[in-house]
């Protein structure tokens, strides 16, 4: 067994520097690597390019990095839940690349799968396709999109083992499963880190080869963005 275990979040984030490109898993606040984000705030790295479907909310998730102006450029599909984000974007302080969600996911997956580029119909005829190669397949127009190139990928899983194998829970799988192994170095924070041999190999979502460093997060707030309930 090759161990991917590191002792804590500080060890996991070693080597992250100003100006680097970092992928971060999660959809809204669901499945975000919250321990790593908190540590990035503390580490005070700046000029980051972040690839993440959303940008958190004002006081949680990537919103914390935005507050401290640590992000230079954000690559996302939807950023509507964050007022500070909108302010920085409209004032030009923050560079933003809005990408269709399926394209964003596939650009991660392509990087993960060693595919440099792919064609998708999403965005054809819109400003998203401007300056990109387009091509017709089966009578339909498609846009060429490139795989992302990132220095670090930070994902969050429910369970993981020392070998780096990951299991996600519910819709917290989202971009986490697409980003694992999609950057030069992948960091996984998990709610529960168990010894190798504990998890059933049939139930692994992401094999440990895709994960370079794994650690158990100290505390998970798992904040809910829209608490919707019905009465009994």
């Amino acid at each position: 067994m090759i161990s991917r275990k590191v002792n804590n979040v500080q060890e996991a984030l070693e080597g992250i520097q100003d100006g680097q490109t970092i992928m971060l898993g999660g959809f809204g606040l669901c499945g975000i690597p919250e321990n790593s984000i908190a540590a990035l705030v503390e580490k005070n790295v700046t000029n980051l390019t972040c690839i993440s479907n959303n940008a958190g909310v004002d006081d949680f998730g990537l919103g914390l990095l935005l507050q401290k102006r640590q992000i230079k450029k954000m690559i996302s599909s939807y950023v509507g839940e964050n007022a500070e984000f909108e302010r920085q974007m409209l004032s030009g302080e923050l560079d933003v690349e809005l990408t269709p969600q399926g394209t964003l996911a596939e650009k991660c997956r392509a990087a993960q799968a060693g595919i440099p580029a792919f064609f998708t119909p999403a965005g054809f005829g819109t400003e998203v396709a401007e300056g990109k190669e387009t091509r017709e397949f089966n009578g339909k127009m498609h846009v060429m999109e490139l795989a992302y190139k990132a220095d670090f990928s930070i994902v969050k899983a429910w369970k993981g083992d020392e070998a780096g194998n990951l299991i996600f829970k519910g819709t917290a799988r989202n971009f986490n499963a697409c980003m694992a192994g999609a950057a030069k170095i992948t960091i996984a924070e998990v709610e529960e880190l168990v010894p190798a041999g504990t998890l059933n190999p049939n139930e692994i979502h992401i094999p440990g080869i895709m994960v370079n460093r794994i650690f158990q997060g100290e505390k998970f707030e798992k904040r809910i963005e829209q608490r919707t309930v019905r009465q009994k």
């Binding site: 669901c30 969600q101 996911a105 904040r223 963005e225 829209q226 309930v229």
Partner: peptide
């Protein structure tokens, strides 16, 4: 979900807490 049974890990695209029905499945974004 019923009040008290909401799960931060089970949401819809509107970021609302939801439940699943028999036959449901989860998968990644790609």
């Amino acid at each position: 979900p019923f009040e008290g049974e909401e799960d931060a890990d089970i949401i819809n695209a509107g970021k609302q807490t939801i439940t699943t029905l028999p036959g449901a499945s989860f998968f990644d974004s790609a």
